[in-house]
Structure formats: C-alpha cells, structure tokens
C-alpha cells in the first residue's frame, strides 16, 4: 500500500520511464540468449565454426577453453554473458580486430543514414496522408493512393540502382556510389560520428557538401520505398479521426479548419510514433541492401561481409548490437507513446 502511494506520487513521465527501463533488462537477456543459441544450434564444433576452416588446432583449443565448451550449455551461456558484459564480443578472424571495435567504427555511418532516412520517410508519408485526407477525392488524393500502393511493391535495391543510373550515369549530377565522402577529402575529426555534423563542427564546408551530397541518393531511395507504407498507415489513422464525431463536433462548434487539422494530427500521433520506431528498427536491417549498393561501409555491409565469409562471431556480435539498438528504439517509442496518450494508465 505505502510503496504504491509513493509510486503514484511520482510524476507520470518518471513512472513511464522507470517501467520501460525495468522491462529492458529481461528483454536484453532474451536477445542475448537468442544470439547465443544462434551459434550453439549449428551442427558442428562452435569453435571451428567461429574461427573458420583455416584456424590452427592450437587457437581452436584456446577458444574452446574461453567458451568453456567442455561445460554444460548454461555455464557456457553464463561465460558468454560475462564476456559481453566485459565488452568482449570476440575477435573477427577476417579483420583480426575485436568485433566490438569493428562495430563501433561502422555504427555511425549506418545511424546517420537511417536517421535522416526515417525523418524524411515519416515526414513525407504523414504530409502526403494528411493532405490527401483533407482534400479527399482530389487528384492529389488519387496520386497519393497510387503511390502508397506502388511504393510497397518497389524493391529498394532496384530503386537505388535506377537512381544511380539516372543521376550518376545519365545526368552526372550525383557523385559515384562509393562511400560517404569524396576520397580526396579528409574525414573531419570525429565528434558525433555523423559526417554532416562533424564537418560543420570542424568548419569544413567542402566536406559537409560532399557528405550531404552523398547522403541524398541513399536517403532518397529509402524514403521513396518506405514512405508509401507510412502514407498508407497515416492515412488510415488520420482519416479515421477525420471522420470521427470528434472532428464533427469541433466543426459544429465553429473551430477553424486549421486548428481541427492540428487536433486531428495530435490524435494520430501515438500510432505514428509506433510506426516510426518500427521503421527505424526495420531500416537497420533493410538498409543492408542500400549500404551495399552505395558502398556505405556501415554495419549492414559489415554483416553482409560476415555472412559471405562465414564469420559467425562477427555475425553474432552484429545481431546482438542490432537487437539491442532496436530494443532501445522500441522502448523510447513506447515511452513517447505513453507520454502523448493521456488515456494510458501507469
């Protein structure tokens, strides 16, 4: 009773955040377990699988010991969790570097790409949806509907290739799809890892122009492909509210149209937040294709390399980091969702 009262007296936001944080721990544990089992369930000797065919017997014996392969599965899992908590994700036999370092090097490239892409995707999708609901039956509405449809059928890799073909090969407007920055330029000193921001901090406008220019096509690809899904979702959420008695009542009260749009948008916010977080998580995986085409050098490409090289330790590390990232994104989204929807009890 007493603790409950103390809990109730805390600000709503704090309660929401604390509940989410408490949930992250078991979820993270589950994710780790799955990443662990992914390798354990493989037929064959995990040490040989992870170290590859060219490993010496000596190194394999060493690795077996490190993993505790002679012990039972749960002890092994405990060792694995222990290693991860120490920041030891293992070493990649291909890059000969600690996997955590590899991942940390490549993460900013991917994050920069998908963050811009999500902002553009959600912004474009929601705008199209709102305009087409408010101007229902107009040519814009029809165009939006056809786009929402067709976009879902576009493979991102095809769109990326076509954009490269048109804007690089035919028109020559876009830079070649090789990396995040012109090879002739120096990388600005790392602060955030986002080249567009770091270059501005360093005052290097040439680097900024190059980084921004090279972001355009990949971001455009992701936006074109995914904004359709956002449009469809936002359209159904927004139009449901637009047709609800709530909006009818505001209109009957003489509230100006533009305020009604704003209130309806505010009402559609919770599902839009969930979808945005879903897209952010989805893109971490889906950007793999775009990264490959634009030689982006991010996490996705690293994962593809790992698959091609049968580098299971690196793959395991990537799966773990990606899942953790998605978990955090979803948790933040859940928090925002509860904050913007006063109906949810905490």
């Amino acid at each position: 009773m007493r603790t409950r009262d103390i809990w109730r007296r805390q600000p709503r936001l704090l309660r929401i955040v604390l509940i989410r944080l408490a949930l992250i721990v078991p979820q993270m544990f589950g994710v780790t377990l799955v990443a662990f089992l992914l390798i354990r369930l493989l037929p064959g000797d995990p040490a040989r699988l992870i170290l590859g065919n060219f490993a010496t017997d000596e190194s394999i014996a060493l690795y077996r010991e490190k993993l505790g392969l002679d012990k039972d599965v749960w002890t092994q899992f405990a060792i694995y969790v222990g290693n991860i908590l120490k920041g030891d994700f293992g070493t990649s036999p291909f890059t000969s570097r600690p996997i955590l370092e590899d991942l940390a090097d490549r993460a900013p490239a991917t994050l920069e790409l998908i963050l811009y892409a999500v902002i553009c995707t959600v912004g474009l999708g929601v705008t199209i949806a709102v305009v087409s609901v408010v101007k229902r039956g107009s040519p814009f509405d029809w165009g939006a509907r056809i786009y929402g449809f067709a976009a879902g059928a576009l493979p991102d890799f095809l769109v990326a290739l076509l954009l490269v073909f048109v804007f690089f090969y035919l028109l020559g407007w876009a830079p070649a799809p090789f990396g995040r920055l012109d090879l002739m330029l120096n990388t600005p000193p790392q602060v955030t890892g986002f080249l567009t921001i770091d270059s501005l901090i360093a005052g290097d406008f040439e680097a900024f122009r190059s980084a921004a220019g090279r972001l355009i096509l990949p971001v455009l690809t992701i936006t074109i492909v995914n904004a359709g899904a956002v449009t469809k979702m936002a359209h159904s959420v927004f139009s449901e509210i637009w047709d609800s008695p709530i909006v009818g009542h505001m209109r009957a009260c003489g509230v100006p149209e533009q305020q009604i749009v704003r209130a309806a948008l505010r009402n559609s916010l919770p599902p839009i937040i969930s979808v945005s977080s879903f897209i952010l998580g989805f893109l971490l995986g889906a950007a793999v294709l775009v990264e490959t085409i634009f030689s982006w050098g991010g996490l996705g490409q690293y994962a593809v390399q790992a698959v091609i090289n049968s580098d299971y330790a690196a793959l395991q590390g990537f799966v773990l980091v990606a899942s953790a990232f998605i978990l955090v994104v979803y948790s933040v989204a859940d928090i925002l969702y509860e904050v913007v929807d006063p109906r949810i009890r905490t």
């Binding site: 009542h249 505001m250 003489g254 929807d341």
Partner: peptide, 23 residues
C-alpha cells in the same frame, strides 16, 4: 464558421465520443 457555435450550437449524443481524447 461564426454561425456554427456562434449563432446556433449543436449538442450531440454520447459526449465522451465527441470530446478530443488527448486534450
């Protein structure tokens, strides 16, 4: 616009469904 609510106002059924739930 000023007629609705300013001259003639409507009170609908089921007030809970008429009010903006997030304001």
């Amino acid at each position: 616009g000023s007629y609705r609510g300013g001259k003639v106002a409507l009170i609908g059924t089921n007030a809970k469904a008429l009010l903006d739930p997030v304001a």
